[in-house]
Design a protein around this nucleic acid. Sequence first.
DNA 1: GCCGTTTTCGGCCCGACTGTTTTCAGTCG
Length: 579
Amino acid sequence: MTNLELSWALEEMGDLLEIKGEEPFKVRAYHRAARILESLEEEAAQLHARGELEKIPGVGKNLAKKIAELLETGRSTFLERLRQEVPPGLRDMLSIPGLGAKSIRTIYQHLKITTLEELEQAARERKIRTLPGLGSKTELAILRGVDMLKESRDKVPLGVARPLAELFCRQLRALPGVDRVEMAGSVRRGCPMVGDVDILVGMVSAEANSLFEVIERHPQVKEVIKVENNHLSLRTWTGVKVEIFVVPAEKFVASWLYLTGSAAHREELGIYAKEAGFSLEDAGLPSRLEEVHVFLTSEEEFYSRLSLPFIAPELREGRGEVKVAKEGRLPRLVTLEDIKGDLHCHTRYSDGLHTIKEMVEAARARGYRYLAITEHSRSLAVARGLSLEQLLAQKEEITRLNEELEDFTILAGIEVDILPDGRLDYEDEILAQMDLVIASIHSGFRQDEEQMMARLEAALRHPYVDILGHPTGRMLGRRPAYAINLEKVLELAAETGTILEINASPDRLDLDEVAARRAKEYGIPLAINTDAHDAGRLEDMEYGLAVARRAWLEPEDIVNTWDLDRLLKRLKRNRHLKL
DNA sequence: GCCGTTTTCGGCCCGACTGTTTTCAGTCG
């Protein structure tokens, strides 16, 4: 079992304990351990082999025992017992903003409700407001929350799906008779939320059955939904649907094309082919997976048979990509190799896990040339936002570290809160001293559009605000965007020369691909930032890149593909200065 | 639950906001 899977299991234990009404500190211990495991550099399995599980911070005797059981058997008797005690629907309710464990317990005890459907119905029938401590506002929050959850129903964030897909791919590749394994479908196209994980296996020998038998026993597998001759459909314990398709090696590429989709892209191709007098089938794209008759060696070969350049998976959404490809105007999509630095991360100074040095080492290991340290500001107490003294002390440490570094620059930045009244959380004199200022909203989420826009406008017009962080505030499947007028935000960003962030955290992916593409039309520069709270999460850059690529963005559009000199000159604060 | 130490239990991050009440509990970040 991987650290990520262990982390999911502990997270679920924590949630179920919370709903059960266990003491908050116990609950927190599970959640804390889950978070630490997720970002642990060494695999827990290796630590366990050496008998060193308890060396993991936040893991004591009890948690070590539970982790050991998971590692040895792939299951947890404790978790299974919890799942029996707490109806699983109750855990889903935790995702409704404004509804916590205590309220869920009240609702469960009084109304015996165990599913989101029943909860919605009770809210509609105005039964929630009759319960002690709950009122009409909570009822409204429930209805809104259920709506949001419905939208993301049966979908999981790319940040969950992709690691899972990679895990399955790795393990499938190790099996005998397997020639090639790749992910396909919406995961390959980089969709922020995916309904299922499609995996394609090309085999040189043996048959699918023996392979399926191995996979069905995988510890992540909760149930097998369907087995057909070349198709296995299963659900994992984390609720993700995984579809595994098996084809003979020679049919791999054509099948991969088909499974990657999207349907809208295939349709666009179909229209183009018809006009041009081609047949998609003859060129290699089957109309059904079972009907592959053309053996391609690569996807490039397919597109070239249609006289088209290769169209990247992220563009295959039926958004005009075929027409643009035909005209030879496809964007040169930004790639990880283009990224020269990360402009948003946290360290131990605020709520991050690692030291500045550790973050810098991780950034250098990724081949970056620069890294901006951007802690939370003083008002954000929960995240240990920096006092003035701490901020200046950190700035000094960064200056010292920079003197030791060759070919790398640490920027002394700050993620300053945009306060509910539109002021920033530090005085201008302080902000003027920083290398880079990100302004973000972390409070007063429920203000109306007028108030929100006043705050954002004040921040965007501020002479020392270089980047607007996670501009809409949405959390995927958890929280909708603030009440803002996005078009107006874009106008203001363009007018004031403020950079907009594509926050790469898989929980956010904010701006989204539609807004990012709009931003490009406005000529607004974007930054893809991970907002990493530990060194491992610098890897989230790939999710931000998926958004950027789906938004048709090129390296030129992304400021952190630029050399540091050019980037610094572009910052609002430096635009009129000679550096 | 963990942790640290003062070896054996008390502290663990807490302040703001909101909604429900009418002085505070629950939720959130």
